[in-house]
Amino acid sequence: MSPDNIVQYLISGITAGSIYAIVAIGFNIIYNTTGIINFAQGEFLMLGGMISITLAQFMPLPAAILAAVIITAGVGFLIELVFIRWIDSPSVLRMIIITIGLSIVIREAALHIWDEKVRALPYFTGNEITSIEILGARFSPQVLWVLGTCAIIVIILNIFYYYTLTGKSMRACAANRTAASLCGINIKNMVSLSFTLSAAIGALAGCVISPITQTQYDCGATLAIKGFTAAIFGGLGSSTGAIVAGLLIGVIEAASISIIPLAYKDAITLTLLLGILFFRPGGIFGSREAAALKEY
C-alpha cells in the first residue's frame, strides 16, 4: 500500500463518515427532549431530498433547499401535533412503535407522491467529475459541503442547548419530565419544537448528501441505520459525539476495506459497536452513570 493510498482510504472513510455523522445529529435532538429515538428520522432526510429536488426545477438551488427545510419542518411539527401530543404518558416503547409506524406511512406516501425512481440534487460545487486533490488523494467537493454543514449545525446546536433558556428547557425535559414540568416548562411545546427542529436538520442533511448518495423514496431507512449506529457510538444526546463517531466509523470501515474483503465491512463495524457498548454503555462521549439512569 503506497502512502497516497493511505490518504485516499482516510478520505473515502471521511466521505462515508460525514454522511453517518450528519444523519446521527438528527437523532440526538428528539432524544435530548423526549429520551426516545425517532425511527422516522431517515424519512425526514428522504423528504428533504425529494422536496428540494422537485423544487430545484422551478427555483435556484439555495431557495429550493430552504423551502424543503421549511416544508419538512412543518411536516415534523404536524406529526408531533397529530400523533404524539395527545398521548398522556408517552412510554419509550409506545413512542418507538409510533415513530416506526410513521416512518412506514411517510415512505409509502412518498412512493405515491413521487414514484420509485432515483433522483439526485446537482453537486453544489462543480459536477459529478470535479475532484479536489490533497496529498495525492482525490475527493468530491461535496464532501466538504457535508462536513461544513455538520460543523455549523453542531456549533449552533451546542450554543442553543447550553446558552439559551429554550435549549436548557429542552434538555431539562429529557433529564426529568416531572421536575421540568414543576419548574414551569411547557413539556408539550418543547416536544413540538424538538420534532420541528429535528425534521429541519434531517431535511438539510438530506439535501446536502443527495448528490453523493442519490435520493429515492425508500433511502431513509438505510441511511437511518448507519446514522443510528453513529449516534449510539458517540453517546446519545451528544452532537459532537455523533460527528466524531460518524467519522470514526467511516474511517474504520475504510481501513477494514483496505485489508479484508469489502463484504465484511458491516461485521467489523457492528463488532466494534458491541464492544463499545459492552465497556462503555453510554457511548464514547456519554457517561456511564447517565446511561444507567435512562429508561433503556
Binding site: Q8, S12, G13, T15, A16, T213, L223, P261, L262, A263
Partner: peptide
C-alpha cells in the same frame, strides 16, 4: 474481485483498493 452491499451509497474505499 469485491462484493458490495446493494444499498451502499459510496464506494470510494473499495475503488481505492481496486486502483491499487
Amino acid at each position: 474481485s469485491e462484493v458490495y452491499d446493494k444499498d451502499a451509497t459510496d464506494l470510494t474505499g473499495v475503488l481505492t483498493k481496486v486502483r491499487d
